[in-house]
Design a protein around this nucleic acid. Structure first.
Lengths: 153, 153
DNA sequence: CTAAGACCTGAAGTTCACTTGAGGTCAAGG
DNA sequence: CCTTGACCTCAAGTGAACTTCAGGTCTTAG
């Protein structure tokens, strides 16, 4: 019956500020119908979309990328469990990649402490290109692109 | 003899743009002396500092935090291997934390795919507070604070 | 010595992901 | 009916981390 949620309810249930929800709508991450008076009414699966947005952000994706990912969901019908499962599964590799990059960083840090170079002189830490290369198309570092790299002494 | 580097040399050797190096200097992350004509001259250990900056950024630290960390280095003398080792070692826990947060995220994602909730209804993924709590003081998520949280249906 | 190219400063611009503010409208309880 | 609080829009502001620009100076190879 009350399957339509006001922005305040959505905010309360997701922990996302109303202003952020409006922003997400303006960016095409979620959609909303309108009440007679022009107020937003969100369908229940918006909660799921928003949850997905937050999770994807924690994995390091930009809103642009998240929008693209969400575009894979059906728009006609309410996404099913399988729709979501498929979408979620597609992040597994990404997470695995990020984890291995960090593990590599940790191990390299150890070895760098040992050798004293701290990332200079062909130190693996300072040359993350190979790590990035293994990420395949669309690969990027934890905090955005770090495209250039060193020719360290 | 030529132990002073121009900004261009620093940039070439670190892969960091000259504008970024100037910015780092303005932010107090590195220091530079000046030539007779007013151009920056960097000492050799600036390369090490800059390398550290980049690494710390990949671990998710802000420049403010990195500056604070670098403040632990001696300013009178050139930092020794042990100085750097001490500094580097202090990141190990941080890396371990980040790795475990990501691993948790991955595992939770699996279980959420299984249960179909995708982070709703007391899903662990959607309530990262406990994960964050384990990070101790100064804990933060991968891409900045995500302080608020849900009272999801 | 001179020209090219590296460097300088300070201010302004950029991107991302939002938040804040101003000024006004909608909806629900009493 | 009326008031209060939630909601609306649009524009502008925020902060992090830089980049770009304009206009001018230094340095160095030839």
């Amino acid at each position: 019956m009350e399957s339509e949620l006001s922005i305040g309810e959505v905010a309360a249930r997701t922990g996302i500020a109303p202003s952020a929800v409006r922003y997400y709508e303006s960016e095409g991450l979620v959609t909303a119908s309108r009440s007679a008076g022009g107020q937003r009414r969100f369908s229940r699966d918006t909660l799921r979309r928003l949850a997905f947005v937050r999770i994807a952000q924690r994995v390091g994706l930009t809103l642009d990328e998240i929008r693209d990912a969400l575009a894979g969901l059906p728009t006609k019908r309410t996404p099913t469990h399988d729709d979501w499962a498929e979408l979620s599964a597609s992040w597994r590799p990404r997470l695995d990649e990020q984890i291995s990059v960090l593990e590599r960083l940790r191990d390299d840090l150890d070895s760098c402490i040992g050798c004293g170079c701290l990332s200079l002189e062909r130190c693996a830490l300072y040359n993350p290109d190979d790590a990035a290369a293994s990420l395949g198309p669309g690969a990027r570092y934890l905090l955005g692109d770090r495209p250039s790299d060193a020719e360290v002494e």
